[in-house]
Nucleic acid binder design. Structure first.
Length: 872
RNA sequence: AGGCUCGUAGCUCAGUGGGAGAGCGCCUCUCUGACGCAGAGGAGGUCGGCGGUUCGAGACCGCCCGAGCCUACCA
């Protein structure tokens, strides 16, 4: 074995083996308890970023854990057709060839996009495999597969039949670049500096940030109880303006805030969501002056053809010239921008399909309230309720070509609308020609069906029967509304049951400055680079260790390096074990009585095992990773392996040697199984070199903590040994005595039990602390020696000729100071009568014990210091 | 505007009512026979601030300051 772990070849090799052997496959016919996760389908345009790496590492940890634990684990993989993003990519390709999608026509464009998907859409799947994802790849799904498309149609038709779907003219968020409608969720908001223009409207003045929309004004509005303007209510005013004299009616509406600006607003139903509502309430005309291209249209008269923002400047100039601008104030407000291309969204009225969400939301709220769905961490439930309770209808049509085309047909002859599971050609009413709706459905519409469409719905399949509802959904909190909430609504609606029992929402990964990673900022950390540099296992372990955090993970590469070192540590521990096994005979080992160190490490392993299990069950991946790290490095490697060297190299008892070999192998093997969900590759690589049962660690049982291994007395005794070794090392370190110098240590135990223990473990202490040990309950302090107390045992280290005794004086003074701080603290606590009266008795007793202990230590240290002084 | 989250060692973060922790970084020593991607030792913290509850608060409550996120029809 090499002295360093090299991940590159092991990873590729094992993944190929696993895949070929079909270890990832789940069988719906298996009688084992089902455990199912459906992957949040990545976009086909995507390539693996840190968010995917985190999300999928967590899922793989869960799936591998459950699979090892004997459950029928199914992880369904797939990709998402990502309407806007994919169409954008192909349009850009066309543009490079000097063509537009219109040049190709719809059919050819869609064909071309399919071709692009076949060629480039699989990148992220290969990258997930690189990450070690143990998905059942035979079940790879795509949102536009025939089966899933059928599900989309079925849902659309049934919603229509039940009146949960409607088509209407509404003000929507329009992206003038993407040329499509956006749902509220797809609009981001950004605080921007702007100007607030105070414009004279006849006898009134009003404030606006969008003077260009004044051309579309169809009324003025004030608050109904605003006395200042009561006399104008219902009147129509003649107003001189840039377009000449215009006539405006003054209406009263609750939506107007009398305290803002002048308390008067201009109403532009065609270009402002609030105004649209006001317009509806008062039957106002919708006068559109900005086109879907973001330019002023013919109704804008002299301004026609100008870009909306250019027009703003021009109108302000013209108003100023006419003396109609009263003042301009600097103003900050939030602007809606397209989440894809960051273009400022234009509210526009158009005909769209909507889902009535209120009836769907009610059961979705109940599912969480009743505990049928558990959201982890808990804090997100509140956010979920708030959104669900204030839910608004969902516009689902998108003006794109790439996606599920809306299954609605219009008859121009009789004006009827037909929604159908099968394609229609002739009008069922009049036999006239039909034209299919041009739009496609929001990508999230098909994603919302993912947990059941991937399992075969609307067909009834063994998979659905077995795995629905799925067990857990793992995703980022940023798509709680986009995706999670909608899956819950549609799952309940069409399956009659929740889509999953647990939702684990993880944090978002940012850079060390807390900035979101983005190509524009150039602060992207590519998980593939990290895997190249440090190995997949190191990256996975890092992500698990960071997963416990709140909303952000500030990601620094040095953390990955640290866990690469951890992988190497495991590798070398295994190397140590394997290199000491040539003569190992398990049959002989069974006869050996375990020594203290053996009992101790087995007990620690049992503790680590239950910690890991508990942490995984609670989705506390950081705790699980921490427990593993602590155990492997600071218990197994730091102490047990070092202790093993004594019996392996220096003991003359063959039985002791075999027994140590047995412990080493057993602990290592179990540790590898514990590590496997986190570090699949290195664990398999080492496990295969050990004696093992079964073809792969993937299917070996996940360790259970055996209560017979929990050994309180071994832990207590080993704590004494460790404390003494550490104390002696401390003296060596503080006194600057080189490690090569063998010290002498005189141990003076205070009880017969301790005496027996120390006599039995003298050789171990000796080896670990590099010193010659004498155990003597009646020992007198040797002259010119350092002294310390650990676990009640006095320990003298003669320093004659080794160091300047002044250094020891200082060291002792430092220790005394520490002890005195403790004493003062404990005394203060115990002097408090209320503490003694009200605190639980065991707490009081513990503190009393500590106080006497610290006092004893202080006295001994003082005596030591005094002797040193007089020794001079 | 409302809601939520966070403020603990130089950095990144654990710590969900009883003796302030980890990783990295830093300082000293070590070429010890698994590992220098290592070993041993060490320095470093008024737990954002102020009040309150409690025998006891980094943890619970209130207010304040600071950072961030989400929701909203602030023209």
């Amino acid at each position: 074995m090499a002295d360093r772990y090299d991940p590159t070849q092991a990873e590729e090799r094992w993944y190929r083996v696993w895949l070929a052997a079909g270890f990832f496959r789940a069988d719906p016919a298996s009688p084992k308890k089902p455990y199912c996760i459906v992957i949040p389908p990545p976009n086909i345009t995507g390539s693996l970023h840190m968010g995917h790496a985190l999300d999928n590492t967590i899922q793989d940890i869960l799936i591998r854990w459950k699979r090892m634990d004997g459950e029928n684990a199914l992880w369904v993989p797939g990709t998402d057709h990502a309407g806007i993003a994919t169409q954008y990519v192909v349009e850009r390709q066309l543009a490079a060839e000097g063509k537009s999608k219109e040049d190709l026509g719809r059919e050819a464009f869609v064909a071309r996009t399919w071709k692009w998907k076949e060629e480039s859409g699989g990148t992220i799947i290969r990258q997930l495999q690189r990450l070690g994802a143990s998905c059942d790849w035979d079940r790879l799904r795509f949102t536009m597969d025939p089966g899933l498309s059928r599900a989309v149609r079925e849902v659309f038709v049934r919603l229509w039949e039940e009146g949960l779907l409607y088509r209407g003219d509404y003000i929507v968020n329009w992206c003038t670049r993407c040329q499509t409608v956006l749902s509220d969720l797809e609009v981001e908001h950004e605080e921007r500096d702007a100007q607030l223009f105070y414009i004279r409207y006849g006898p009134l003045t009003l404030a606006t940030v969008r003077p260009e929309t004044k051309l579309g004004d169809t009324a003025l509005a004030v608050h109904p109880r605003d006395r200042r303007y009561a006399k104008y209510l219902g009147k129509t005013l003649e107003i001189p303006s840039v377009e000449g004299t215009i006539r405006m009616k003054v209406v009263a509406d609750q939506a107007v805030d009398p305290k803002f600006g002048t308390g008067v607003v201009k109403v532009t139903p065609a270009h402002d969501p609030a105004d649209f509502e006001i317009g509806r309430r008062h039957g106002l005309e919708v006068r559109q002056v900005i086109g879907f291209d973001g330019k002023m249209n013919a109704r804008a008269g002299q301004y026609a053809g100008l870009d909306r923002f250019e027009c703003r400047g021009r109108i302000v100039e013209d108003l100023e010239r006419l003396g109609l601008i009263e003042k301009i104030e600097p103003y900050q407000h939030s602007v809606g921008i397209c989440y894809r291309c960051k273009t400022v969204v234009e509210p526009l009225v158009s005909t769209q399909w909507f889902v009535r969400t209120k009836p769907l939301a009610a059961p979705a709220i109940k599912a969480v309230r009743s505990g049928k769905i558990k959201i982890i961490p808990r804090g997100w439930t509140k956010t979920y309720y708030h959104w669900m309770e204030n839910i608004r209808d969902w516009p689902i049509s998108r003006q794109l070509w790439w996606g599920h085309r809306i299954p609605a047909w219009y008859c121009d002859r009789d004006g009827t609308v037909h929604v159908s599971r099968t394609d229609l050609v002739r009008c069922p009413e009049c036999g006239g020609p039909l034209r299919q709706d041009d739009d496609v459905l929001d990508t999230w519409f098909s994603s919302a069906l993912w947990p059941f469409s991937t399992l075969g719905w609307p067909k009834s399949t063994p998979e659905l029967e077995r795995f629905y509802p799925t067990s857990c959904l793992v995703t980022g909190f940023d798509i709680l509304f986009f995706w999670v909430a909608r899956m819950v609504m549609l799952g309940l609606k069409f399956m009659g049951d929740v889509p999953f029992h647990d939702v684990y929402l993880h944090a978002l990964i940012r850079d060390l400055e807390g900035q979101k990673m983005s190509k524009v900022k150039g602060n992207i950390i590519d998980p593939l680079d990290l895997m190249d540099a440090y190995g997949t296992d190191a990256l996975r372990f890092t992500l698990a260790a960071l997963a416990g955090q709140g909303r952000d993970i500030r990601f620094g590469e040095d953390r990955v390096e640290a866990y690469r070192n951890f992988a190497n540590k495991i590798w070398n521990a295994a190397r140590f074990v394997l290199s000491n096994l040539e003569d190992y005979n398990p049959a002989v080992a069974r006869a050996g009585e375990p020594a203290l160190a053996d009992r101790w490490i087995l007990s620690r392993l049992a503790t680590a095992t239950s910690k890991v299990r508990k942490a995984l069950a609670a989705y506390r991946f950081n705790d699980a990773a921490g427990a593993l790290y602590q155990f492997v490095w600071h218990e197994f490697c730091d102490w047990y392996v070092e202790a093993a060297k004594l019996t392996l190299y220096r003991s003359d008892s063959p039985l002791a040697r075999t027994r140590t070999q047995k412990t080493l192998v057993e602990v290592l093997e179990a540790t590898l199984r514990l590590l496997h969900p986190f570090m699949p590759f290195i664990s398999e690589e080492i496990w295969q070199r050990l004696r093992h049962q079964g073809p792969t660690i993937m299917l070996a049982p996940f360790p259970k903590a055996r209560s017979k291994d929990l050994d309180r007395s071994a832990e207590r005794d080993m704590a004494v040994v460790i404390a003494l070794v550490t104390a002696i090392r401390n003296i060596r370190g503080e006194m600057r005595i080189p490690p090569a110098t063998t010290l002498r240590a005189v141990l003076k135990p205070a009880t017969p039990r301790a005496t027996r223990l120390l006599k039995a473990q003298a050789a171990l202490i000796q080896a670990l602390a590099r010193c010659d040990v004498t155990v003597d309950p009646r020992a007198a302090r040797p002259a010119a020696s350092a002294m310390t107390i650990a676990e009640g045992v006095e320990c003298f280290v003669p320093l004659e000729g080794l160091v300047d005794l002044e250094a020891e004086r200082q060291r002792l003074a430092k220790e005394i100071k520490k002890v005195e701080e403790q004493i003062a603290f404990l005394q203060g606590k115990l002097r408090n009568r209320e503490f003694k009266a009200k605190a639980p008795r065991d707490v009081v007793e513990r503190e009393k014990g500590r106080l006497t202990e610290q006092r004893t230590i202080r006295e001994k240290l003082r005596v030591s210091l005094g002797r040193l002084g007089s020794a001079r």
